[in-house]
Amino acid sequence: MITALVTIVVLAALAGVASVATAGAPREISLADRIDALLPQTQCRRCTFEGCRPYAEAIARGAADINQCPPGGERTAKALAGLMGVEPKPVGKEFGVVPDHPAVAFIEEDACIGCTKCIQACPVDAIVGASRHMHTVIAADCTGCELCIPPCPVDCIVMRPAPAVAR
């Protein structure tokens, strides 16, 4: 009995020493980092958070469920469930529909009035243009988040199938 207690105390002390020793080492990979690595990085905010990273942090502290990411679909939900050790479940309908194909935004350039509102809305700086000049979406950088669509005053942004990756 006493031996066991002593062992526990010694182990606890050792663990304490170990944690002090690692405190100065480079930042270890946190749970939020690992969750973030599984997210599609669309930054679409359909999960109700301000981007993929904030959603990852919310899952890590238990403030969000694993089924709030429509762009990631079933795969992401499954991977998140695996990481968090919970039962997988389908993406919640209230967060939006899971897209069949990846899409990117496209600006119909004849209609664009150059208001810059979409540029400000784009979370990944994938739209170029200047005030009173035509804007355009860099298709390779667009994540298909659709955040640029509501601010456009002339409705000149449409979603199109993503171009195939050239190899």
């Binding site: 990085q41 990273r53 990944v124 950088d141 994540t143």
Partner: peptide, 22 residues
């Protein structure tokens, strides 16, 4: 697999641009 690796790379790039913008 190629598609998955491409998606991974573009997700990485999107994250970098998102963080840079913030």
């Amino acid at each position: 697999l190629t598609r998955e690796l491409d998606a991974h790379l573009s997700a990485h790039a999107a994250r970098a641009r998102f963080l840079a913008r913030n």
